[in-house]
């Protein structure tokens, strides 16, 4: 009858100091968080944006230099490498995770005995730190002791797998490790979506004579649109922020071959004493994430509003 937004408004005009305190209490409770977020998130964002227009080097300085940092940023080969890597990494990471995730979810949805064992196995990497993941894959992909060596021991002596040492191919090693960590999670998202589909629709499709394959292609997968969208947003967000994994796996090398915007920002700000450029790269990263997240959050909030 009443809208949720209004449902819980307490009596507004209670009298007396105690009652007034009661009325202000909710705001007082929320105030510290609000202040913290205003300062530590939005204030800091503004500060970093400001720094990106200054001549800051090893420490923040406040001489304005206009767009000079951005101009320098876009002339730096390393930044272009970082962007190119992000494009390769992001596209493959999202693409492969979605394919594996959907594939596994559909397989698991075939009334599998032992689903309760398999599902946690697919998902546990998500509980690990990227540093741990990076360490494991770093040595497993290492030609000296890892996979290549294993193959040689098993008699395939001509096997070569030196991607992690190869400036052209090292970024694909990052993709391998990252997919390993996240694809189980994408599987869980799709599985939740599959389990949420109305049984009667599927029964109707069966009666209409659709094969299992047709049911998935024509009816089930189109209904997973929200899961696709969520997976894309989460993975894109993770890809743009990726830092730990690269540090642990390749430390952005060999050379700067696996540089990503996050490692670029860190090294220019804290190691190369170009804080202005670092700040500018952080601003670009923020804009990249915002372009993915803001429409999504906006749609979610709007969608939630319509449901009421």
């Amino acid at each position: 009858m009443s809208t949720i937004a209004q449902a819980s408004v307490p009596p507004a005009r209670a009298s007396g100091a105690r009652a007034r305190l009661q009325n202000w209490l909710p705001r007082l409770v929320l105030a510290p968080s609000f202040a913290a977020i205003l300062v530590f998130v939005y204030g800091f964002i503004l500060f970093t944006v400001y720094l990106s227009f200054t001549d800051s080097t090893i420490l923040p300085r406040y001489g304005l230099v206009g767009w000079a940092n951005y101009e320098r940023l876009w002339r730096l080969p390393n930044w272009w490498i970082a962007l190119e890597n992000l494009a390769i990494f992001g596209a493959l990471y999202i693409g492969i995770c979605v394919v594996i995730g959907l594939f596994l979810a559909i397989l698991l949805d075939q009334k599998i005995r032992g689903e309760g064992v398999l599902r946690p196995i697919y998902l546990y990497p998500m509980a690990l730190s990227f540093i741990v993941t990076g360490t494991a894959w770093k040595w497993f992909l290492d030609p000296g002791i890892g996979l290549e060596q294993v193959m040689h021991h098993w008699g395939w002596t001509s096997f070569h797998f030196t991607w992690i040492k190869d400036t052209e191919m090292a970024i694909y090693c990052v993709v391998i490790a990252a997919v390993w960590q996240s694809s189980g999670f994408v599987m869980a998202m799709f599985l939740a979506g599959l389990r949420g589909i109305d049984n009667e629709i599927l029964r109707a499709a069966q009666i209409d004579g659709a094969s299992t394959f047709q049911i998935y292609r024509r009816i089930v997968i189109p209904q997973l649109r929200p899961a696709f969208l969520s997976a894309f947003v989460v993975l894109a967000h993770l890809a743009i922020k990726s830092y730990d994994l690269v540090v642990a796996l390749t430390n952005a090398g060999p050379g700067r071959a696996t540089e990503l915007p996050a490692t670029f920002m860190y090294s220019y700000t804290f190691a190369r004493n170009s804080m202005g450029v670092g700040a500018a790269s952080a601003v670009i990263m923020l804009m990249m994430i915002a372009s993915v997240i803001v429409p999504y959050v906006y749609a979610e909030i709007r969608g939630g509003g319509n449901e009421r």
Partner: peptide, 11 residues
Amino acid sequence: FIPFQIVLIPM
């Protein structure tokens, strides 16, 4: 959702 790189310097 912010990339934490944006707050590293001021923090």
